[in-house]
Design a protein around this nucleic acid. Structure first.
Lengths: 95, 95
DNA sequence: TAAATAATTAGTCAAATATTTAAATATAAA
DNA sequence: TTTATATTTAAATATTTGACTAATTATTTA
């Protein structure tokens, strides 16, 4: 669980996630979007993988990354508690 | 925006938020829930404040903390992008 | 007003994190 | 099979973070 929050804490990783909403991309294309070395991006992708926020498959020499629903579902599950809190009807005062 | 993700990255801060779903509490009561010094908790509360995840008001010598909807709304706004992505109908293959 | 209570601010330090360069691995193309 | 390309792993470094103790501020009570 902790790993998901850690993963989305970094602005570069959030940008990677946003970029992947345009569809699956290989590591090189992702790295190209950022002013950062490939090893750095590789490390960020690894963390996103650990958090199950991205998935990957190998296509020849290319690693293709895509969004993975399951990481997002764990964020949603956590968030639910607060959604309920704020949606809870406030106690009415009897006039 | 970054500050919200930073705030929810720490497990102690997430526990504080969860504790506050039981209703507003003063700083001492919050600190009491954790195996940690008051200054540490005070620091965590400060960060949650900055992220607009909690609100506070002074009641005599007590600081009363409560959940603040607006911080949660910014998380929700970010999350929305991915909700849309996963809900998007997948392109159908014509038979 | 003096002492006690509630909480924060300041300063310090160890642990965790993000980035870089260099080396290694795997696949593809010549 | 040699060379080039795509990507990851490893090692080193700088920065950020979280926790503590000590000192400070604000409020209440004796």
């Amino acid at each position: 669980m902790d790993i998901v929050f850690k993963a989305i804490n970094d602005p570069t990783r959030r940008e990677i996630l946003r970029f992947l909403t345009h569809g699956p991309q290989n590591a090189g294309m992702i790295a190209q979007q950022f002013n950062m070395t490939k090893p750095s991006i590789s490390h960020h992708l690894d963390l996103l993988k650990q958090a199950h926020l991205v998935d990957f498959s190998k296509n020849g020499q290319f690693m293709v990354y895509s969004l993975n629903k399951s990481g997002f579902e764990s964020i949603h599950a956590w968030f639910q508690l607060f959604t309920l809190y704020f949606e809870l009807p406030k106690p009415k005062i009897r006039l």
